[in-house]
Amino acid sequence: MLLARSRRSVVLSTRSLVFSLVWLAASVGSASRASAADTDRGAELYELCTQCHGVAGEGNQAALAPGIAGLPEWYVLAQLQHFKKGERGMHPEDTGGLRMYPMSQTLKTPEDMQAVAAFVAAMPKVSSERTLEGGDATRGAQLYTICVACHGPDGAGNEALGSPPIAGQSDWYLLSSLQKLKSGHRGTYPNAVVMRGMAGTLTDEQAMKDVIAHIMTLHPTNAAAAAPNQ
C-alpha cells in the first residue's frame, strides 16, 4: 500500500514537474504576444486538456487526441471556435471530435479561448512517432502537388488561407483527418467543405498513406521557419 502510494506520489510529482516545465517554456515563448496573466489563465485552462492531449501537448492516439504543442495560435483558436459552434465534432462517426465538442463548451469567453490557444501555440513542439506502414513517399510526393497550393511545399501551412501546418503532425491523425474530410464527417465549416473535395482526389486509403509518407519526410523546423505567421 505504502509502495503504491509512493509510486503514485512520484508519478504525480513527475507530472507536475513536466507541466511546470511546459508552462515555463510556454511563458517564455508567449512573452512577446501575451501578458503573464493570459499565460497563467491559458495554463490553468490547459490543465483540462492534459487528460487527452498530454501535459506537453504531445497527443495520445488511444484517446484520439492529436499532438497540438506548437500549432499556430490562429489555427488552434479557429478549431476551438468550430467545436464550440458545433461546426466540428458533431458527426456520429467523428468519435474524437465528439469528445472535443463538450470540452470546447468549457471555454466560456473569447478571452479564455484566446488564452488557451496562445498557451498551446507557445508550447515547444513535440516530435511524433510513426505508426503507419506501407506508405510510398515517392508516389505521395506526386499526390502532394495538389496540397502545395495551400499547405506549402514543406507543409508549413498558410494562415491567409486557413491551412494548418501539417509537417510534424502525427501520421495516424493525418490519416484519420483525411478520412473524415473525405467522408464529410469532419465538420461543416468552410475549410472542411473545401478539403472534402481535396481529400476526394485521394482515391483510397493507400493513396492517403502515400501522401502521408511524403508529409512525414517534411521537417517541422523548416515548416515553422517558413510559416507566414512565425
Binding site: 456520429p92 468519435t95 465528439l98 469528445r99 465538442y101 463538450p102 470540452m103
Partner: peptide, 11 residues
C-alpha cells in the same frame, strides 16, 4: 443509443 466519451448518438 450509442454512448461515448462524451456524447450520445441516437439513431
Amino acid at each position: 443509443i450509442v454512448a461515448q466519451q462524451w456524447a450520445w448518438t441516437f439513431v
